[in-house]
Design a protein around this nucleic acid. Sequence first.
DNA 1: TTGTACGCGTTATCAT
DNA 2: ATGATAACGCGTACAA
Lengths: 344, 344
Amino acid sequence: MRLEKMMNNTPVTLKFLAEKLKMSVSTVSKALNNYPTINAYTKQRVQEMARELHFTPNKSAINLKEKRSRIIGVILPNLLDHFFTRSIYGVEQFATQNGYNVIISQSHDDLEKEIQSANMLLRSRVDGLIVAISKQTQDFAHLDQFEQMGTPVVYYTRNPSFNLSCHKVLGNTFQGCYEATKFLIGRGHKKIAYLGGPKMTNFTHDRFNGYINALKDNGVPFSAKFVAYTDFDKENTIAAIKNLFADSDHMPTALVAFKEPILFDAIKYLKSTNHPNFNKIESIGFGNNAFISYLDSPPIASIEENPESVGENAIKLLLQLINKEIDMENYQKVMVDCKLVVHG
Amino acid sequence: MRLEKMMNNTPVTLKFLAEKLKMSVSTVSKALNNYPTINAYTKQRVQEMARELHFTPNKSAINLKEKRSRIIGVILPNLLDHFFTRSIYGVEQFATQNGYNVIISQSHDDLEKEIQSANMLLRSRVDGLIVAISKQTQDFAHLDQFEQMGTPVVYYTRNPSFNLSCHKVLGNTFQGCYEATKFLIGRGHKKIAYLGGPKMTNFTHDRFNGYINALKDNGVPFSAKFVAYTDFDKENTIAAIKNLFADSDHMPTALVAFKEPILFDAIKYLKSTNHPNFNKIESIGFGNNAFISYLDSPPIASIEENPESVGENAIKLLLQLINKEIDMENYQKVMVDCKLVVHG
DNA sequence: TTGTACGCGTTATCAT
DNA sequence: ATGATAACGCGTACAA
């Protein structure tokens, strides 16, 4: 395996091949790219030599010439969140099918890091950008640069809640929450609590609206006592749950939660308090974590956000923008439905 | 925010700036790179103009010129495995500190995809490669190419078990398993089962050796009845567990498992069988999954593999190779110790 | 202090 | 059918 270790110090370029073959650089280039005007025998000689010497075209040179990189940049907050890693799968799949490669960059929910990532991708002249903004992002100068250079940007999942004109691909979190609530009502619950996420997050409110509308559409009265908010901090979640279950005359029998990790904290806490009807409480959260099958008191269902599909829709839209099939000024908004998955 | 939307159609290059400023391209270049020979006032004018026009140097052009990309390639099987995403954190951290960017590519444990990724990174002329090979990888031609071009490669975590001469950074999986076994012995267990992973995986055996040695060093007799193997398939795991707990005269009281997901399946199954001493069984697996805190019958401890540290060691070694502080032929092997984390 | 000229590796146009 | 040449954007040795 290590046989041909000759440490070629002179890089194998077209010029190098040309010299070896005593031909011109342009002939070699054309032969490798299978130009019709090149003699079959010549092609064969060139291609053999190229293979033998492990010729690998230099992408930087090609990018420079072609004024495009065939690279899609992705900026996202965190690779530890399965939502994002699953969404990447959808992006990659469709991108490579269309001859694009993907560069992933994490912001760690830090604005500085997001700006750095953006600048790196800008310098790399990516052909398009897919971004889920950090929690801190309020100013978009570093992302607007792309569009100013004519590089399309698609915001996905996390996006500016105020009405920035931009291309968006979002999970239909309203519909997901609506279905979950409706499902619980269908199972006979009348006292359904809603545990929301950070209030500044755009879809906290969409989800709440899904909850409210499901109640209304099914004639279940709404009570503000059944609503609480938390960030992702455990203490905070416990405080919220305490509040929701404080009034013994007014005790929720079901729970819809913003995200499963929060829900797990809630369930764990409720269990630890020896809540009298703990076993009857039915809960649902966003996520559909694979881990659920190991829990002794699992949620009755999960709101599957289909991250692969979100990613796929983002890259599809982006490619249409790159190919000018959609005008960059013609801002698109794509919603991807959630699916309620009942655990068995 | 969208104010300055002028859709600059002419790209802002050094040449463009030079024309605007009525100077030569090289002066502009030098001014931007803060050459000492350039007049302070000139520098200022150039830098202002560059900022105003959002000049962004073209990385492809620079790569071409400098014959290096300041990019590190990473190929790994899967972003859904937290071991790998956590290891990336270590890589990124240290890479960016040293002026390198990171391109991540997933093989999905598919050799074809791994080859594609390798070729992509080769064409991009990454300055170094960090790779955790796919399960299928037996032939290394696609990875050897890098070293043939003078680009150093560091194999991490997953690596060829036969003695290929290459740079390696590995978790000290022997030590991890040794400590776990010893810990269980210390808690009074004499019948400790070992549930191993796929037999072809290199560190299945290292771990087994850790187990065996801990038994021997502490005077606990070994029995082949206490050893079983599984791949990551659930059915397979259950079959293995059935075997381990088949003989009622010879029932394990503790369990060391190859990886936590396997262990969780095992625990779940044992619980479902109403095993008489289920509550007394103590178990440990590799991973330290954050979800453990939500389990009702959690492992007593976890073997934390410190993936961030593995990643950090990999990039550190790679940078030394890139900087020729270590000779490429002088193959290194770095072991990163595991740490036993006791829950509760 | 600034400018000229060349080369990095590749593709494409235009000659030959 | 093949070759010479220019161009992509940038950095730098050398000239002015």
